[in-house]
Design a binder for these strands. Structure first.
Lengths: 197, 197
DNA sequence: CTGCTAAGGCAAATATTTTGCGTTTGAGGC
DNA sequence: GCCTCAAACGCAAAATATTTGCCTTAGCAG
């Protein structure tokens, strides 16, 4: 579709997309955000502005597209030997990255997109990561385990909520608190009780 | 400062601000979001575009300014007789309002602002509302009560998180679940145990 | 190799944002 | 009430950004 990653993999489309994304990432680091313009990006990427406008619509959507890719997990997830440890390692890194000024910008860019679909995709990635951690824990024989939804609501939600609205209130202690609390709940009320995925 | 509500209350500044805000609210309902432009708003408000640019900087910030006011609580909060009931009444109305397309737009507009300060202010309002509900519960003699932070993390966070990323997963049952769970936690671990405000 | 279509280039036409400068407004001193 | 002063606005020109029509190119399919 419109802003899909690659209409024809390996073709010109893909090359243009990559050049533009790279130009954005490059320029974003070099100059203040308000100086970032489509014509500027186009020049750096070696394309004409109209190409960008036709594919992405506007600067906002282009930035959201680039930012969304940055939210995509690439690191293979640490294996600490326990669900609590894995969770902490992952969310802590996430927090670290997103409390930085550029990190918050990434979050804001994604939220700034008009397309709900894009945000939902990011959410899905987070969900998948958590599922993976749960699977690993299950295969290690850990029990009882919380459901994915419990982890989303109990750990990710407070984290993202505070990142967006009150980043200065975040610290590792809170993170640990949310994780411990969510895991404790799972002990008190086995996850099978609610029909989670 | 720059986008402050009223530099000179009652003066021309205030009149212009009101006219512009009204123009935004009016036009926002009449045409598609992508057709909303500064010159259009200026015309409707009876001012010149440059006035808007000088005061708000850009469309994005103007929209954020208007949206932030909509997030400000105006309804005096229902009094149902119990903390659980008050919480549900308030959050349910909030959810109802924000799951609508225009409501989500309001949230997105606020998140789209460059000024962290604006978002923090919105968060502070939510915090104040919750504090008020807690005070009332306390004066009714309800105990044990959760802390404000518990309510923020346990109820508001999942609500806002899902509103932003996965609004289709929201429903009243979840809301009730979060509220019940958070209140139950307060029973299990008295709030005084953690040094919350 | 040939035809076909999606995507890109180019440049003209529009629309927007920015800026300099003169004018108005309203607060405060007298 | 009158005067002074600075902030905020209006206006219009200049600078930028965005949109659009038309033509060219690239790459897939037969």
């Amino acid at each position: 579709m419109s802003t899909k990653s690659a209409a024809r993999p390996g073709g010109r489309s893909a090359r243009v997309q990559q050049a533009v994304h790279e130009a954005v990432r490059g320029l974003d680091g070099e100059l203040a955000r308000e100086r970032l313009t489509v014509p500027l990006i186009a020049e750096r990427a070696g394309v004409t502005p109209s190409t960008i406008y036709r594919r992405w619509g506007c600067l906002r959507e282009l930035l959201a597209d680039v930012a969304a890719q940055r939210l995509q997990p690439e690191a293979p997830l640490a294996q600490t030997g326990s669900l609590a440890g894995d969770l902490f390692a992952w969310t802590q890194e996430y927090m670290e990255e997103m409390t930085s000024t550029p990190g918050r910008q990434v979050l804001a860019d994604v939220l700034g997109s008009t397309h709900q679909e894009r945000r939902t995709r990011c959410w899905q990635w987070q969900r998948d990561q958590l599922s993976l951690l749960l699977e690993r824990a299950a295969s290690r024989g850990e029990a009882p385990l919380p459901g994915v939804e419990q982890l989303l609501d109990g750990v990710m939600a407070p984290l993202i909520y505070r990142l967006s609205y009150a980043p200065h209130t975040l610290d590792e202690a809170r993170l640990r608190h949310w994780i411990r609390q969510t895991l404790d709940e799972a002990v008190a009320a086995p996850s099978a009780a609610r029909g989670e995925t």
